[in-house]
Design a protein around this nucleic acid. Structure first.
Lengths: 223, 223
DNA sequence: CAGAAATGGATAGTGCTACTGTCCGACAGT
DNA sequence: ACTGTCGGACAGTAGCACTATCCATTTCTG
């Protein structure tokens, strides 16, 4: 397969493929002559994965590169790779100096009996959320953390079960990566649907978007 | 309060405040003379909210503007405002023409007994996730949607209960906005913590970041 | 009350990211 | 032979979220 065909089957423009090759997101094709290369299924699969991470996962090119590096490292345990992936997909959050939020986070983790890893992006993100809630005048938000923990554990168990179901280590590794961004996106989407549904029920209103035609709706409100 | 003090108390640079004023994210200050304005608590509170949406919620300036417009519209019902907010905070996803994914999404919504709103960003996002799962060779991902729905409903009920607890409609409206991005961030963070915890337990490994000092860890692995 | 500092408003510029376009000499297909 | 595509290098672009500069006023400070 040459680059044009790869572009066609994966639906990615040729210049973008060249860019990904430059950035190390795709391995170079097999050179058949100094300026002709051949690509295979591996490239196609990898290219789809990259597009999924960028488009659905909202990841940056640098994060994708880190994740793929972890995926291609044969020496790492599943657990370690998972850690690398988590670090890579974590959004960057500016740090906070709110020690109340810090304490709330620590107490939460202790209450759950979880390992306290104060430098992990996940923990920092949690503290940042708690600090923000306080800053904008919603300190009671912290009280619901334990409910969130139950939800997080449920989702986490699904992820682990999924990965353990994989027959080979390589597939399990890819499963880790895929779950890390796909299920985040899925949860976010389902959650928005559920929120809207509950809101509609509660307000007793017919939902404006429930009619499929939407012809008589002003633009911007048809959903 | 003048702009310098607003900048100091909210921790936002003066040029950024000016930028937000230009973009309509902050109402103009009360003019005391043709080129002097005064800002109050309202501005400070709003400024903190904007920063929270941008930094923690990862929202774009345009999305923030839309959300604030909904928040400031006194004629809208809570439910309608919530809809506007949901649309604004939804990430942009390229559409898909995968009719299998489309059908999976529709069946899922029907199974849950939810309203089918095929044009909502949430539904489109869900279909996109299902399509992506199939594209990258993980079609069995769709089978877990119902578990996600349970989680989504749990979280949604928390959100609704929180909003209904608010004494006034204005506060409830702000509650909607705050919940829309804060709890997304909180779920994501808690979920990452839980995933790591479960992974550590399952692998039987000591988590490399569990020690607070981290002195002997190579950089990039201390979390 | 004079001079330094800050202000609101306008406009231009910056840094970053993720591409996208152009050019080139070398093949490949017909 | 010749038309089209190729890989590779490099420059250019679009969009976003600021950031910097300027200027004609105020406003504070000594």
């Amino acid at each position: 397969m040459r680059i044009a065909e790869l572009s066609r089957t994966a639906g990615v423009p040729v210049p973008t493929i060249k860019y990904y090759l430059r950035e190390g997101l795709l391995p170079a094709g097999e050179l058949t002559s100094p300026n002709q290369a051949r690509y295979g299924e591996v490239h196609e699969r990898r290219l789809r994965l990259v597009r999924a991470m960028v488009e659905v996962g909202g990841m940056t090119i640098a994060a994708v590169r880190d994740v793929l590096a972890a995926l291609d490292d044969p020496d790492k345990s599943l657990h370690k790779s998972m850690g690398t992936v988590e670090v890579a997909i974590a959004p960057v959050v500016p740090p906070t100096d709110d020690e109340v939020a810090q304490r709330q986070g620590e107490e939460f983790v202790a209450r759950q009996g979880w390992q306290h890893r104060p430098n992990s992006p996940a923990f920092k993100a949690l503290v940042r959320v708690l600090a923000t809630a306080r800053e904008i005048g919603h300190p009671e938000f912290a009280e619901e953390l334990d409910e969130y923990a139950r939800v997080g554990l449920t989702l986490g168990e699904l992820d682990v079960a999924y990965v353990l179901r994989m027959p080979s280590k390589d597939e399990a590794l890819e499963g880790v990566v895929v779950r890390s961004f796909l299920s985040d996106a899925a949860v976010a989407a389902v959650r928005r649907l559920a929120r809207r549904e509950l809101s509609a029920r509660h307000s007793g209103e017919e939902d404006p978007g429930s009619r499929s035609d939407g012809a008589d709706l002003e633009p911007g409100l048809e959903c």
